[in-house]
Design a binder for these strands. Structure first.
Lengths: 241, 241
DNA sequence: CGCGAACTTGATGTAACTCAAGGCGAGTGG
DNA sequence: CCACTCGCCTTGAGTTACATCAAGTTCGCG
């Protein structure tokens, strides 16, 4: 039983741009099916061409990369609404892998159809570029955090980001949201060791900032968290000549 | 005196995809002018909307981000052929700044025209998405390097990447290329201190891997460099059922 | 000649790493 | 139902790859 785009539970969320009737009809045709996967499933693999692209309907996952020495870099956490496989779509090859962490439901598209998307409905092509730009911005922030900040700030930043995204896609309830990852995943995302990550999480817990237990994240002091997590300033003061 | 797209010195490079006559004509119209800037010029500023987008014709620059605590993250080095301002173009706001490091010549486009690009010539919209995907892949690699690898490997990786790109855009000569940045820039790109960066560069010099003096990078032992710089494996072995 | 920008080098400090061990809950099998 | 394993989290002790501090050198420039 597949979901019609018209009935997509994500579309009404304020986080997403509105669809025109025409776009809706187009996406309905573009979508070739729906897919259910279990935790641990590899959806896309780094260095390979995938014939399929996905949009996450529900569930959570991970984008990650394995290096020659065997270490892993988690690129980002995958949430409902995320488009998976842009690189495969336009370049042919993926630079990272994508893996399901919970049960996931995904819309499936054909890689080969992506060109027709640009051609027949430029609005959708533009939307794809928009998504790519958002991803680029996120990766810039992640790079800055991993490169420049101490462990305490890194973890606060990651948790704050995650929580806000969770809220935006409607999986948060009050000041809590599901966080079905392992501490090792977070460590791999931020370039920290598991042990150190654990200690810093303990500190944030003791300080009453946040608690992460049983796959649930609870924000105890949002103001404080935001303050620690803050990455860059707004626009600089305007010059006067 | 502006360069016609037809005469663009970059276009023939093997690194770039071919243009159709139609695309060429379109880009000629899309381009609103040419711009010359001096070292130190801020082309785009994080957190602002820019009415102009650019493609680098010649010269070198930096994408970077300034954090609340004043530290800087260099996102990437800007080379001829790089498109600047995608984020401003499709999202409105830049997540990082772009600054000229040498004299630069740039093609100038109007932000407002970007939508017409998708609409009237989808091939060009697709090209833009392609660029964005390449950037995303690069940022993933950078994140993995900064997050997981020791200083020695980071620097080797950065230098190898830089040299290959330089070669691809035709600014390398033999085993040398211009590298008009400061050690501080490299340090800020890799999340290292200036002092440590300096020491590791010294080590690579002593070991006969590479030399960076007077704004010129010389690769002394490419095989060794590649070996240190290697980031990830190719595609994994294929499973058999 | 004095000054600032960039590079270099040595000494000292520390944030985060590794190693090692133990606890706890869930599953499994005798 | 208990013994065992396994995955995950937690904590302490010792180590190290970096950072920071502090000079000193070189070079171009006003």
């Amino acid at each position: 039983m597949t979901t019609k785009c018209e009935d997509c539970p994500l579309r009404p969320l304020s986080q997403f741009l509105r669809f025109s009737a025409e776009e809706l009809a187009f996406m309905e045709r573009f979508k070739t099916g729906e897919m259910q996967v279990q935790p641990g499933t590899h959806l896309l693999t780094q260095g390979t061409r995938s014939p399929q692209l996905f949009t996450t309907l529900s569930g959570l996952g991970l984008r990650h990369k394995t290096l020659v020495d065997g270490s892993r870099q988690v690129i980002s956490f995958v949430m409902p609404g995320d488009f998976l496989g842009l690189q495969a779509g336009v370049m042919g090859e993926m630079g990272h892998s994508v893996e399901a962490v919970t049960d996931m439901t995904l819309c499936v598209f054909n890689r080969a159809d992506i060109w027709s998307l640009f051609k027949t409905l430029p609005e959708r092509g533009y939307a794809l570029a928009h998504l790519a730009a958002i991803e680029e911005q996120f990766l810039g922030d992640a790079l800055a955090t991993v490169g420049q900040r101490p462990a305490y700030d890194k973890i606060a930043w990651a948790m704050a980001r995650y929580f806000h995204r969770a809220k935006a896609v409607g999986i948060a309830k009050g000041n809590t949201c599901p966080l079905p990852f392992r501490q090792q995943h977070l460590a791999d995302a931020l370039g920290l060791s598991l042990v150190h990550t654990n200690k810093v999480l303990g500190r944030l817990r003791k300080e009453g900032v946040l608690v992460w237990t049983d796959d649930v994240l609870t924000i105890r002091d949002m103001d404080r968290l935001e303050q620690i997590a803050a990455l860059d300033d707004g626009p600089p003061p305007r010059p006067l000549i």
